[in-house]
Simulated scan of single mutants.
Amino acid sequence: MVESSPAVVNDEHATARTRPALEGITGAGRVIDPGPVTGSEDVGVLASAAGAPCVFWLLGGADQTPFAHATSMDEIRNLVAPIPSNHSPRYAPVIDPTIEVGVHALTRAARTWLAES
């Protein structure tokens, strides 16, 4: 059996609403749009079924040092390419600050939406 999901497309207005919350945690220069990302995610299907806007983001978990002087998406892509993805048995995120940043980002994004509910 083969299963597939359509590409995940972020809602433009929801992304514009959420982005400042993420930038408040990481800094404006640290939130980037990588463009289309290959992979298999069903979150877009879930958002569509719920009639909810989709804002899907990726949280980096690699050592930040090599990325400190990257100035373009091409440089970032080259740095990311050899890093095992989250579905790899070799996936090993840097625990600190990955978990702290992730929890703060998710909390701030949720509060952005809940504050206006």
Rank of each mutant, 00 (worst) to 15 (best):
E3M: 00
A7C: 01
V8C: 12
V8T: 14
N10W: 12
N10D: 07
D11R: 15
D11W: 15
E12M: 13
H13D: 12
H13I: 15
T18M: 04
P20I: 04
A21D: 06
G24N: 07
T26V: 14
T26K: 11
G27I: 09
A28N: 12
V31Q: 00
I32F: 07
I32T: 13
P34I: 13
G35L: 04
G35P: 00
P36G: 01
T38G: 03
T38E: 05
T38Y: 10
G39L: 01
D42W: 06
D42Q: 08
V43R: 02
V45N: 11
A47V: 09
S48E: 12
S48V: 13
A49P: 07
A52N: 00
P53D: 01
C54H: 14
C54R: 14
V55M: 01
F56M: 11
L58I: 13
L58F: 14
L59S: 09
G60W: 06
G61M: 02
F67E: 03
A70T: 07
A70C: 06
A70P: 04
T71D: 00
M73D: 08
M73Y: 05
D74E: 11
E75V: 00
R77H: 10
R77A: 15
L79F: 07
A81V: 11
A81D: 01
I83N: 03
P84T: 08
S85C: 12
H87Y: 14
P89E: 00
P93N: 07
P93W: 08
V94L: 08
V94D: 02
I95L: 05
I95S: 12
D96R: 13
D96M: 11
T98S: 04
E100V: 14
V101S: 07
L106V: 10
R108M: 10
R108A: 14
A109K: 04
A109P: 08
T112K: 04
T112Y: 03
T112S: 04
L114D: 08
E116V: 15
E116G: 08
